[in-house]
Amino acid sequence: MEKLIVSNLSAEADGKKILNDLNLTLSKGDCMALLGPNGHGKSTLFNVLMGSPEYTVTSGSVTMDGEDLLALTADQRSRKGMFMAFQNPPDIPGIVASDFFRASVNVRRGEPVSAYDFYKLTEEAYRKVGLNSDMASRHLNEGFSGGEKKRDEVLQMLLLEPDLVFLDEIDSGLDVDALSQIASIINEMRAKGTTFVMISHYDRLYNIVPPNRTAVMVDGSIVLEGDASLAKRVSAEGYSFLHSEYGINLAKKRPIADPKAPDILSLGVD
């Protein structure tokens, strides 16, 4: 991927607008910190870009190197080199992790990977993320702890070698040692030109994976962009300076939080 251009993108779920005329351009090699208060659409942006069927794009466009991304299904986007590490990877009982990994490696190769090469590839990846390779024989994400799920997402990122990666709170649930293992993997991939966008609420990730860009999302739009210093400032001061210095209203014009969450007003709670 050389360039991803998001223009005037609006999207909704269950009739509620979540992305609101959003503009964003990513260039090869970028490492962006995506910040914003809870419930303002960060994860939704990742999921819309990855092709989740849960969301409907109502207007705008997304192109990757000139190609219309929105016309592609999630699996086609994956095979174009996109990858999203899920915030909450689902348990999928019945599917053995190594069978799934092998299938996902094979769909992007002309020839299926040989048993020996696949073994070497996965052993190395398990070692790098600090998981026991015995986990390959377990069912996908089933019974994994929060931290194991996050490492398993990074493991799949290593196996699939994507060009453009969205990390949705990859650092949550990881201890300090695990975080530094994951960070060195991200930094290694960055050195090879992989583009990253990271959502995190903690600057400990941004301290060891220093972004070159920061974007702040409010009410479904990118309202402010800057360099790494912006991420540091948000981490130190919170979001209130957006209002006092830039006149950005932090209140949402409409409820855009989890569309599946109950409407508090309808529950009779003040």
Binding site: P53, M84, I92, D99, F100, S104, L160
Partner: peptide, 17 residues
């Protein structure tokens, strides 16, 4: 969706499940 996001088609994902 999770399986498709790793490159498997919808049919292949359903077949594996």
């Amino acid at each position: 969706y999770y399986m498709m996001s790793r490159g498997l088609t919808e049919d292949e994902s359903k077949r594996l499940i």
